[in-house]
Amino acid sequence: MKLIVRLLAGIVAGVIIGLLVPQAGVIEALARLLVTFKSIFGEFISFTIPLIILFYIMSGVANLQQGSGRALGSTVGFAYLSTIVAGSLAFFMASTFIPGMVELGSQAASEGGGLKPILVLHIPPVMGVMTALVMAFAFGMGISATGGSELKTVVDQAKDIVELMLSKVLIPGLPFYIAGVFAEMAVDGTVFSTLKTFGVVLMLAIVMHWIWLSILYFSTGALTGRNPLSMLRNMIPAYLTAVGTMSSAATIPVTVRQAKANGIDDNVVDFAVPLCATIHLSGSAITLTTCATAVMLLTGLAEPTYAMILPFLLMLGVTLIAAPGAPGGAVMASLGLLTSMLGFGESAIALMIALYMAQDSFGTACNVTGDGAIAALVERFGRTAEEPMASAILPEGQEG
């Protein structure tokens, strides 16, 4: 919550500085410093993206515990399907309602706007996004299959270094980065239309979370013979806990307790809920898809179509498996896909980060609430009567 306050302060400071630029030379110098920081910090984000994908996904795949095969496969399958369908529904809702609510293309001139950085520094990434993704899965599955403990230790330590870089450099620097972005927009005259869009998109994302949870629980109720309203009511404490903690992992004890209150087998809950805290991110997919659609319309980047969004969603469902545990980890993990598959530039990325972080707690709450429905489906379809349930262990530091 402190980070959200800092981000909001960064937005306000950036807007004020940008609006005052024409009146004062000192303010213009400050604005140029902010834009310089934004430029260099943006390069650092681009450098970090492949490292996040490489080490987090490699470590996440290598650390997936070997539970009973059918239960593990069913849990992963239901979670992945939920994420893709939720994201698809979010796209259709966003592409239907957002065009009538925002000024389309109003942000198109923001890339390379009126303020110029004092210094331009290029930091090329060590590899491309798709190279990092393929390498992560190839080596992650290889480590899991061969039990390569030494290589696994190296990968986990590298992931810890990247996580330290995220928590000590990237996340603390985001408010200043966002301030630079909004200072640029204020100078260009596009800031107020952008802020109006922020409110529309955030409200639409939260409404979509509850629409999806209703669909998920009513479908689960029909398939398992349970009362969906009763199931949803029992999961409310998990939702509220996640809003406060902004972490699926921190909410696991409450999610487990409430899922068991729905009458789901204890062994199934103990297996499925910790695993879903890592791999089930339907709320995050809804927000990312809604925000990406809005940013594409707002910037005039491209006319979003489902043919464009579906491949992005299919890759997003895989990439989010190992989203970093820091606040906003899902959006940080998705940046590579946004740039490589949807063509997002620096300003579009900054808008995505600001939009996502503003509602991170609600996306996480949707994720964990949906975990109760996934556990019920796994109990119904995910194992044979003779098949024992193994304990699922959440890789350290994961976010939902």
Results as ranks from 00 to 15, higher is better:
Tyr239Asn: 13
Arg6Tyr: 15
Ser82Glu: 07
Glu184Arg: 10
Leu170Asn: 04
Ile52Glu: 10
Ala302Glu: 11
Ile11Met: 15
Phe92Gln: 08
Thr146Pro: 01
Ile374Ala: 11
Leu7Thr: 09
Phe192Arg: 03
Gly113Ser: 14
Gly10Cys: 12
Met315Cys: 12
Gly100Pro: 12
Met389Lys: 01
Thr290Gly: 05
Leu355Ser: 03
Phe55Trp: 13
Met315Ala: 11
Leu64Thr: 09
Thr190Gly: 07
Met208Lys: 03
Pro237Lys: 15
Leu297Gln: 06
Lys116Trp: 08
Ala326Phe: 13
Ser391Gln: 12
Cys291Gln: 06
Gly329Gln: 04
Leu151Val: 14
Pro253Arg: 04
Gly336Pro: 06
Leu342Val: 06
Ile143Lys: 13
Tyr56Phe: 13
Val154Pro: 00
Ser347Tyr: 09
Leu351Cys: 06
Val120His: 08
Gly382Asn: 09
Met130Val: 05
Arg226Glu: 05
Pro327Lys: 10
Gly10Glu: 09
Gly199His: 10
Glu28His: 09
Ala183Arg: 00
Gly400Glu: 11
Tyr356Arg: 11
Val35Trp: 11
Leu298Pro: 02
Val201Pro: 01
Thr255Met: 13
Val129Trp: 01
Thr299Pro: 01
Thr278Cys: 10
His280Trp: 01
Ala186Trp: 03
Met308Arg: 06
Pro388Asp: 08
Ala292Asp: 01
Trp210His: 11
Tyr356Ala: 09
Ile252Val: 14
Ala259Val: 11
Ser39Lys: 00
Gly142Thr: 12
Leu115Gln: 00
Ala272Ile: 01
Lys116Met: 06
Ala323Val: 07
Phe92Met: 11
Thr75Gly: 15
Ile143Trp: 08
Ala145Asp: 06
Val134Phe: 15
Ser106Arg: 07
Val162Thr: 08
Ile27Gly: 07
Arg257Gly: 05
Asp266Val: 08
Tyr306Pro: 11
Phe47Asp: 04
Leu240Gly: 02
Met165Asn: 13
Ser39Tyr: 04
Val191Pro: 07
Pro175Gly: 14
Gly300Glu: 03
Ala250Cys: 03
Thr194Arg: 06
Glu346Asn: 12
Leu342Ala: 03
Met130Cys: 00
Tyr239Met: 12
Ala90Phe: 02
Met235Lys: 11
Thr220Ala: 13
Ser95Cys: 00
Gly173Met: 10
Thr319Glu: 15
Phe139Pro: 03
Ile161Cys: 04
Glu346Ala: 15
Gly329Phe: 07
Gly60Tyr: 09
Asn367Leu: 07
Leu34Gly: 02
Ile40His: 04
Ser39Phe: 04
Val61Pro: 01
Glu399Asp: 10
Leu30Asp: 01
Ala205Pro: 05
Ile57Gln: 14
Gly345Phe: 05
Gly225Asn: 04
Met58His: 03
Leu351Gly: 06
Ser95Leu: 00
Val269Ala: 08
Val85Glu: 01
Glu303Leu: 12
Thr83Leu: 06
Leu81Lys: 00
Lys116Glu: 15
Leu166Pro: 09
Leu170Ala: 15
Gly363Asn: 07
Asn267Asp: 14
Val318Gln: 11
Gly325Thr: 02
Pro388Lys: 08
Leu223Met: 13
Leu51Cys: 10
Met141Lys: 11
Val256Asp: 11
Ser144Thr: 08
Ile98Glu: 06
Gly263Arg: 12
Ile393Thr: 10
Ser230Cys: 00
Gly325Val: 02
Met185Pro: 01
Leu119Cys: 01
Ser219Arg: 11
Gly14Arg: 10
Ser39Leu: 05
Pro228Ile: 09
Met208Gln: 13
Trp210Arg: 00
